[in-house]
């Protein structure tokens, strides 16, 4: 995968391209869509967000229109402007291994639209699927083999740090001819908000040391994998740190909520330092 700049808008955060209203696409290497599952998901009941200076906790629950409606929109050229402006990564999810397979089958004929397919194995906010897929290694390997067979393009797994060591999953991905890995997704968190328990996925600056360690370990174990570093990148220095530990590209998420202009600043910095 050749991205210029090697800067990606993270899945979920950027919705279905809405941030192109606020960010000049020339500063975006690729834009990852919100995760699409087999069936439509209305998402979790509110409240869905809690934020501080150190982190954002979200409990969205993979709200999306489902693969059939997505493909219908694709066929109706509803994403044409997005495709014209930037490279797009499709994010694939499901409630169980069978659903992942069926979404892969359905999106396979449209792979040419996308720079890569990123498979979300790590959403912490759904009761089934997401993070749970990693808990059964033998069925995971079966799934990886199947998806590699069905999907011919650049195939990326998005992984969290719970359930399995990241370097172990990286080795498995490499063994099954997957191309890349996005490290890391949000981590499960809990906060008491207005005397009530609020559970969600943590993102933001608090994740950076954890994400850096994950990238470092994976790049040492499986240097052939294309590694997308993600987690707590809020400024140019953060981006530098991820490249120093071996990231091939970086992915921005929560930072664009604070200031969409950060994408341009970091992209220009990458151009000056690594271009």
């Amino acid at each position: 995968m050749e991205l210029n700049p090697p800067l990606i808008i993270a899945s979920g955060v950027g919705g279905m391209g809405e941030y192109l209203k606020l960010i000049d696409p020339k500063y975006i290497g690729a834009y990852t869509l919100k995760t699409i599952t087999l069936f439509p998901k209305e998402g979790n009941l509110p409240p869905r967000l809690f934020a501080t200076q150190e982190y954002l906790m979200n409990n969205i629950g993979l709200e999306n229109v489902g693969i059939d409606a997505f493909i219908e929109k694709l066929n109706n050229n509803q994403y044409e402007e997005l495709f014209e402006k930037t490279k797009v990564i499709f994010s694939l999810g499901g409630d169980d291994a069978q659903e992942y397979k069926r979404v892969a089958q359905k999106i396979a004929p449209y792979e040419d639209h996308f720079e890569a397919i990123e498979v979300n194995f790590s959403c912490p906010n759904v009761k089934k699927g997401g993070l749970n897929i990693l808990s059964d290694l033998s069925s995971l390997q079966d799934l990886l083999i199947y998806m590699r067979k069905v999907l011919k393009g650049f195939l990326i797994a998005k992984i969290g740090v719970e359930g399995i060591f990241v370097e172990q999953i990286a080795q498995i991905l490499k063994d099954h001819a997957w191309n890349g890995i996005t490290l890391i997704n949000t981590i499960r968190g809990l906060q008491i908000v207005n005397d009530k328990v609020f559970k969600g996925g943590l993102s933001g600056p608090i994740l950076k040391p954890i994400a850096l360690r994950a990238v470092y370990e994976v790049k040492n174990r499986a240097p052939e994998l294309y590694v997308i570093g993600s987690g707590g990148i809020m400024c140019e220095k953060d981006a530098d740190d991820f490249f120093k530990v071996g990231a091939d590209a970086i992915s921005l998420g929560t930072a664009i909520y604070k200031d969409p202009h950060i994408v341009e600043r970091i992209a220009k910095h990458i151009g000056r330092c690594y271009g």
């Binding site: 955060v13 606020l22 998402g43 967000l49 979200n58 909520y257």
Partner: peptide, 15 residues
């Protein structure tokens, strides 16, 4: 409701 993006991308301000 709490918001993160304000533009319909994050789906955080659901009611």
């Amino acid at each position: 409701e709490y918001m993160a993006c304000g533009i319909g991308a994050c789906r955080g301000c659901a009611i």
